[in-house]
Amino acid sequence: MPAPIPSPAAPQLHVRVVRFPIQGTFTIARGSKTEALVVEAKLYDGTFSGKGECVPYARYGESVEGVRDLITSLKDDIAAGLDRAGLQQRLPAGAARNALDCAFWDLEAKRSGMSAAQRAGCTPMRPLTTAYTLSLDTADAMAQAAAAANRPLLKLKLGAEGDPERLAAIRCAAPNSRLIVDANEGWNATILPQMLAACAQAGVELVEQPLPAGADDALAHMPHPITICADESVHDRAGLAALRGRYDAINIKLDKTGGLTEALALAEEAERLGFSRMVGCMLASSLAMAPALLVAQRAQVVDLDGPLLLAEDRSPALHYEESIVFPPEPALWG
């Protein structure tokens, strides 16, 4: 991992909340939303600037206002010389550290003339196929959405009564699409064997977080007919080893790890421990996806479709061709 670039002039911190409307409504087992609210951190040293974006998540006790204020509280520390290395100890893993960590990476890239991907050892960067997410809805509505999407890899939001019917209808409507499922902690140990059997019958390749985090011990005592992936159960390296025997894969999200620095370290440790890697995202703009693409270069499953679900993205933005997402241009990030 490259050391941070020494600061020729301590950057000034600017923080703002940005709203992005969603195409229609985005629904998971925990609720629905019609807009993506993100917090943006910008570091500017008078010559170069770096940006990062995060999505505060109520499931982890975060709020937009709380994350914005936490980032803002570091303004004097940054002006006094706090850098990316110091940030790892200054803030815990979470959305606030993510926005600042990615802003530091971007600033370091601009100052050094070397891309963040080069500095992280993630070159050459390749275009990747991302999953495309279908919101939780009725079986008929999800089947129609699957057929209309016509994507090579579909991610299905499940976790409610009627999931076997949804799976069967979607598979019928999209016979050639690969399928992964995100239950968002919506199942329980009693129904889990039935749900996994339905997934296997539909040809699902991976299921994210079928049981609530903290109540997933049952996963160690039942067969895994398909890959079971930890999402809410894993944030950073601290809890990774304890997941062996329960999960086969982990979903790495920068808003959970607290930025690209820890995400890269988590991916390396997960590989060492034998976990498959998925790289995912919250519902956010291209600025949030760009650093995650570095981690995704060595992942088995990529789920970085956030901008595809928005009615309006940033400009400049990532370039998508259907489900293919291309590496970011420096004008966006890195």
Rank of each mutant, 00 (worst) to 15 (best):
12 Q>T: 14
16 R>V: 07
18 V>K: 14
20 F>H: 14
26 F>L: 08
30 R>S: 13
32 S>V: 04
34 T>I: 10
34 T>K: 10
37 L>V: 14
46 G>D: 10
52 G>K: 10
61 G>S: 09
63 S>G: 11
67 V>W: 01
68 R>W: 04
77 D>F: 09
80 A>I: 08
82 L>K: 07
97 R>T: 04
104 F>S: 03
106 D>N: 12
112 S>E: 08
117 A>I: 02
120 A>H: 02
132 Y>Q: 10
133 T>M: 08
135 S>W: 02
135 S>I: 03
137 D>H: 12
140 D>L: 13
149 A>Y: 01
152 P>Y: 06
168 A>F: 08
173 A>S: 03
175 P>C: 11
175 P>K: 13
182 D>P: 05
197 A>G: 10
199 C>Y: 03
201 Q>R: 15
205 E>P: 02
207 V>M: 15
209 Q>P: 01
210 P>L: 04
212 P>A: 11
212 P>W: 10
213 A>E: 08
215 A>I: 08
215 A>C: 13
217 D>R: 12
220 A>M: 03
223 P>Q: 06
236 D>K: 00
240 L>C: 08
241 A>P: 05
247 Y>Q: 06
255 D>F: 12
255 D>Q: 12
257 T>Q: 02
263 A>G: 11
266 L>M: 05
276 S>F: 11
282 M>F: 09
289 M>Y: 09
289 M>N: 08
298 R>Q: 15
301 V>Y: 15
302 V>E: 09
306 G>C: 08
312 E>R: 15
314 R>Q: 13
321 E>W: 06
326 F>E: 11
332 L>T: 00
